[in-house]
Amino acid sequence: MSLLREAALIAGKDLRIEARARVVGQQVVPFGLIVLLLFAFALDPDRGVLTRVAPGLFWVTVLLAVLLGVSRAFALEADNGARDALRMSGLDGSSIFLGKAGALAVELLAFEALLTLGVVVLFDVRLASLPPLILASAAATVGLAAAGTLYGVLAAGIRARETLVPMLLLPVVAPVLLGATRAWEASIDGVPGDAWPWVGLLVIFATLFVGIGMLAFGPLLEES
């Protein structure tokens, strides 16, 4: 089986399980909307401030959702000895990485679409220039999913993984928070030219972590 077919097998499995378990729909999405609401309550007296900080609040919320998504993605493999079964499957480590990161990216994109709606409604944000905003979001999502999957398997066999993953992952993805926030600000302000350098940074980050993940995931899965 080819790399992409194996990755599609893993991604299909993870997405099917998520569709059945509805953890993203019933827990992660409401969590994100509650975070937005809390920000809105906290900063309500000044709508201008809310609009200005909306990109940062959006991506901080996405980062928190990434932590939940990563935890969920590896909790699936912890039940019923599924991690050993995954090792025994004979699937290539790169394929498993691409599949799990791909499924996480799809879930995050769905989450971001709903969160964007929340930001527009609650924070009165006007999305002036969509192309850089969409590309920045896509690149940031791929980068976050790749880094999250890599650090997720790194901590998979450790009892304190729930606390360890945020400590390891959040500093690493700080460039994504910075780049995606700046790209969104430029898109909202209607100066899309300012967004492209940040989109470039996000693409580099995503490429780097997809590459590292494909190389390192297999050995890390063996040791988890």
Partner: peptide, 30 residues
């Protein structure tokens, strides 16, 4: 590993997949 069938103390299957889906995943992976 692809040529081995291991049955350990746990099933190695996913709670939210059906019997057929779990078997399909195992066979397609192999």
């Amino acid at each position: 590993r692809r040529r081995i069938g291991l049955v350990g103390p746990e099933t190695g299957c996913y709670d939210d997949l059906t019997v057929r889906e779990n078997l399909e995943f195992a066979s397609r992976a192999a």
